[in-house]
Design a protein around this nucleic acid. Structure first.
Length: 650
DNA sequence: GAGTTTGAAACT
DNA sequence: CAGTTTCAAACTC
């Protein structure tokens, strides 16, 4: 497995750490790990069990040291930290392989070329993640991140990148930094991205070339809602066009060498973008490197994820720090309810870090709820349309749909044909909220919901919408592997949740009526005179008047406010049997308005391709890993638990 | 698809 | 550090 060695101790500034030969902070070398994972890329088939396939492939890389130890050997040789690290790696490795094999299966069903196996870069990314994890265990960092920047790209495979491990440190200023090396070449033969930024928040680790590795607890939830390889259609297919979860930029003047460029900012080479005079590519590596250094000189944290902290999946929302934007937003006109706002885009509430004006992106904001419902409605329609498009499309092999892009051309095409949201409806809803017409709004929403229901009912094969069948439908769709079935199930679940939310709003209106108050709830507070600083005006955000906001913690790619859809029900079919969450994904009580009904939890859904901030780093308080492996049990007093208690985990 | 709006990044 | 300009994405028509 990965031999993460700590060669030094201490702290240091990031810039110094990145200077070749500079006096470094702790150096971690995950070379063995990258080599080990190289075995993953050797082309395995989906016919044999994962473990049976992975292990033999990896064996050569570990030839120098025993890979499988007896329990006695383990007890003698393995420290608790090492045991936890190995367990984590095994779990992540399994996910990586599962993603790959599932994608293979999906490709086979769709008649498209199989996806490329995990690359050495992915392996290196994983190794970096593990290194950061190790650092967090040893350094006691809270909410540690693994951020890999500045690809080394030395021919023949020099240092692949830099890993920065940081986070909310118990001791301000203390940071552990490390460098990992990998035997893998610094860039893929196909010229794809060389650099990457990983966010090791609870939302998982975004691997450099698509794919995402989740901590065990989330992996199960993810697997439960979406068959790997099946991508929901996109919300917007123009500039937000995604490939493997990546956006394509359209930079014209920055040469993709400034942080304006999302590709560059996220550490990726531009690939398939529409940019002009792009220098963010392998060929211009020298120029690119200079740009990276210049930016880091100006701001050493420039490539760090903008969103930090938070809880895992919201299950323990009250227990951990809420995710927040590092710098905070400065929105003036959008009310922080449009994707101009980085907080909103990242699916988090605005925080004290923000300097926004007339902010409506806080917990309990009715204006936010309206926007969320609008988005949800749009998403339901969107999925429905995509489903119909997919159903109409004959399943034939399309040579133009390359595996490199995840074979999502179909989804893109479907998305491109999706009609625009009902702007009039949205405007009407906003107006109603301004006037305090919650009841009117609810009536309207009811009508829309009925319309959707009737429309769906008119479609052949529609089974109707019951209160409890959402999850079962999705599971069934997964088993059948049908894209259209999945969308159908998703839409049903969305409508179900939609129904639930409407019910809640009506209950609130009724309650207010009963209480003798007819004020439009938070809407009145939301609609304040523009120009007033929100922190002065938002009582809801005043810590003295309201408890700390339990942030809506949602996985990356989930539309803001959809968190309640995701966390709760255990997967109908646990696809990661070797991994079990320590604190299972219990029902997520994210903001009271959005909590699913206890009696009829909605099916959890995932919207992985929802355009989100780059890098996609939402949720998260560091997850508490607990992995069942054929290794000594991780005793609670061990590193894992110790790390968790100290917040020193990823 | 063109034009406008918005807010982050970059610059002064 | 504040104000201004540049930039690209989000949004509207």
């Amino acid at each position: 497995m990965v031999q993460t060695q700590r060669h030094g101790q201490g702290t240091g500034d990031r810039a110094a750490a990145m200077e070749p030969g500079g006096q470094g902070p702790p150096q971690y070398h995950a070379q063995a790990g990258a080599q080990a994972y190289a075995g993953i890329a050797n082309g395995m088939t989906a016919s044999a069990p994962l473990a049976q396939q992975a292990r033999p492939q990896m064996a050569p890389a570990y030839a120098a040291q025993p890979q499988y130890l007896t329990q006695q050997q383990m007890a003698q040789q393995i420290t608790p930290q090492e045991a936890s690290r190995r367990a984590l790696q095994a779990a992540l490795e399994q996910q990586l392989l599962q993603q790959h094999f599932a994608a293979q299966g999906a490709a086979a069903r769709a008649g498209v070329p199989p996806p490329a196996p995990p690359t050495q870069h992915q392996a290196a990314a994983l190794a970096a993640y593990l290194a950061a994890h190790q650092a967090s265990l040893q350094g006691g960092l809270q909410g540690a991140q693994a951020v890999a920047v500045t690809p080394g790209s030395q021919p023949g495979g020099g240092p692949l990148g830099q890993v920065y491990a940081g986070g909310a440190m118990p001791n301000p200023g203390s940071q552990a930094q490390m460098q990992f090396s990998a035997a893998a070449p610094a860039s893929r033969a196909d010229g794809a991205s060389g650099g990457f930024v990983m966010s090791a928040h609870g939302g998982g680790v975004q691997l450099p070339f698509g794919g995402r590795v989740f901590p065990p607890a989330q992996a199960a939830a993810q697997a439960a809602v979406r068959p790997p390889g099946v991508r929901p259609a996109r919300a917007r297919a123009s500039s937000a066009a995604l490939a493997g979860g990546k956006k394509h930029c359209n930079c014209k003047n920055s040469r993709c060498l400034k942080l304006y460029c999302e590709c560059f900012a996220s550490g990726r080479y531009c690939e398939g973008c529409n940019c002009v005079l792009c220098n963010n590519n392998k060929e211009s590596e020298a120029v690119r490197q200079a740009a990276v250094e210049a930016i880091l000189e100006r701001n050493p944290c420039a490539f760090r994820p903008k969103i930090q902290g938070g809880t895992d999946e919201g299950a323990n929302a009250a227990a951990g720090p809420a995710p927040r934007h590092n710098k905070g937003c400065n929105c003036k006109k959008s009310g922080c309810l449009k994707k101009y706002c980085e907080c909103f885009q990242a699916s988090i509430f605005c925080s004290d870090n923000c300097k926004c004006i007339d902010c409506k992106n806080f917990e309990g904001s009715d204006a936010r709820e309206v926007v969320m419902m609008s988005l949800m409605h749009e998403q339901a329609r969107h999925n429905s349309n995509a489903m119909q498009q997919a159903a109409k499309r004959p399943r034939v092999a399309d040579p133009l749909r390359s595996s490199a892009t995840g074979g999502e051309g179909g989804a893109a095409a479907a998305a491109a044909t999706v009609p625009r949201p009902r702007m009039m409806l949205n405007e009407t809803m906003r107006e109603m909220v301004k006037r305090g017409g919650l009841e009117e709004m609810c009536s309207l929403l009811m009508l829309v919901a009925q319309e959707e229901e009737q429309r769906l009912a008119s479609e052949p094969g529609y089974q109707g919408l019951s209160a409890d069948d959402g999850a079962a439908d999705i599971s069934e769709a997964q088993r059948s592997g049908g894209l259209s079935e999945l969308y159908e199930a998703q839409e049903r679940a969305v409508l179900q949740e939609y129904q639930s939310i409407l019910q809640k709003i009506l209950e609130r209106v009724n309650k207010k009526t009963a209480d003798g108050g007819d004020a439009p709830n938070g809407a009145a507070a939301d609609e304040r005179a523009p120009g007033e600083g929100q922190h002065a005006q938002e009582g809801a955000r005043d810590p003295a008047s309201q408890p700390a906001p339990a942030q809506a913690v949602v996985p990356p790619g989930v539309p803001p406010g959809f968190g309640a859809l995701l966390g709760g029900a255990p997967p109908a079919e646990d696809t990661t049997p070797a991994v079990r969450p320590l604190h299972g994904g219990g029902a997520t009580a994210v903001g009271q308005q959005w909590a699913p009904r206890a009696a009829a939890p909605a099916a959890r859904m995932s919207y992985p391709n929802w355009p989100s901030a780059s890098p996609p780093a939402p949720p998260p308080r560091a997850p508490e890993y607990h992995v069942s492996l054929p290794q000594p049990a991780l005793h609670t007093g061990g590193a894992l638990a110790a790390g968790a208690n100290a917040g020193g985990h990823l």
